[in-house]
Design a protein around this nucleic acid. Structure first.
Length: 317
DNA sequence: ACTCTGTCTCAAGACGGT
DNA sequence: TGTTCTTGAGACAGAGT
DNA sequence: ACAGTCC
């Protein structure tokens, strides 16, 4: 879920942090991309008659289709993408993940119901909600990327954290994602809608963390606490505190501890065993690979290998 | 009046030919 | 051994400040 | 711009 309403808050309170970009700005730039999230989107979107695309053996190919063409399109436009795959989610995220699993299970039941009723429309809808990225999807895409000469990184935990680390280490220009928590992890540049398809309708939008901090009038530590107050994947937030009050409180008190000492707890109920300190640590010192552990090399594609894999193994034409 | 919450919905990619 | 995550936006009603 | 197709 990223950070609740952070995009809106920046748009309202620090508009100078957002730049509407042209794709020419990105020629020659290296960009880190959350691979698992991309795969997820492809699995949901690339469908025909309610089902994913498959080869003759029944293996899903939607993710390869999406990743193949999108990556080609980026390279054609001079972008050097590096894909980052998720590792094990942090313990603190388990509550959130449970919730998501529950929703999937629910959708699974609805899907079956729709199938029995012969309702294709509903089947399609619920089928999309049951999508889950598997080990095989990830491995397929890693194989594809290797053949294409595009590097990838296996993150120890959160892909967004590793993407941000690559920016901080100066290995890439920015993170290409829709997920605003890349900023919370400290990426200075976040690029949204970085897709070059003909059907794109959203302009490329670049967020600068430095300018966002200037515009909001807070420092990075305060920004982290602000994000926790807005609502992140790692812990609850305080009911009744949204974008406006969260920013006001941070500006007034500068950190969550001081806010807790000063707010009326009868009006604003603080969650039990609120894990904000642990969440703060995850954002501040996420588990990431050191700079010398990632070697990003873009090479010529292995054309014979690509044909062999995509055509012979996966049934592309 | 303003702000936030909660809950609901929906839609989601990329290509080439027309 | 069991192995992997969605998200964002918009609309609307309702309650608290 | 749009509808059909990709596998």
């Amino acid at each position: 879920m990223g950070i609740h309403n952070l995009a809106k808050l920046i748009a309202d309170q620090a508009p100078a942090a957002i730049k509407e970009g042209e794709m020419a700005n990105y020629f020659g730039r290296k960009i880190a991309i959350d691979a698992s999230m991309s795969i997820y989107q492809f699995l949901i979107a690339v469908r025909q008659n309610g089902e994913n695309l498959t080869n003759d053996s029944g293996e899903t190919t939607s993710h390869l289709m999406g990743m193949f063409y999108r990556t080609i399109r980026m390279i054609e436009n001079g972008i050097k993408p590096v894909y980052v795959f998720d590792g094990k989610p942090p313990q603190l995220k388990s509550k959130e993940l449970e919730k998501r699993l529950e929703r999937r299970t629910e959708a699974e039941a609805e899907k079956t119901k729709a199938a029995d009723a012969g309702d294709g429309e509903a089947f399609d809808k619920f089928a999309r909600r049951t999508v889950k990225v598997t080990r095989e999807h990830n491995d397929d895409c890693k194989r594809l990327l290797t053949l294409m000469g595009v590097p990838y990184v296996d993150a120890p935990t959160e892909a967004e954290a590793q993407c941000a680390a690559l920016v901080k280490q100066g290995k890439v220009y920015g993170v290409g994602t829709e997920d605003m928590d890349a900023l919370t992890f400290g990426a200075d540049v976040l690029v949204r809608h970085l897709t070059f398809s003909e059907t794109r309708k959203m302009p490329i939008r670049e967020y600068s963390l430095t300018k966002a901090l200037q515009g909001l009038g807070i420092n990075f530590e305060e920004f982290t606490d602000l994000c926790i107050l807005l609502g992140c994947d790692y812990c609850d937030s305080i009911k009744g505190i949204g974008q406006k009050r969260a920013l006001d409180l941070i500006k007034q008190h500068r950190n969550i501890e001081t806010i807790l000492k000063n707010i009326d707890k009868k009006k604003y109920a603080v969650p039990d065993d609120w894990a904000y300190e642990q969440a703060r640590q995850l954002f501040k010192v996420p588990e990431i690979l050191p700079a010398d552990a990632t070697d990003l090399k873009w090479t010529e594609p292995d054309e014979d290998g690509l044909v062999s894999y995509m055509v012979k193994e996966k049934g592309f034409s």
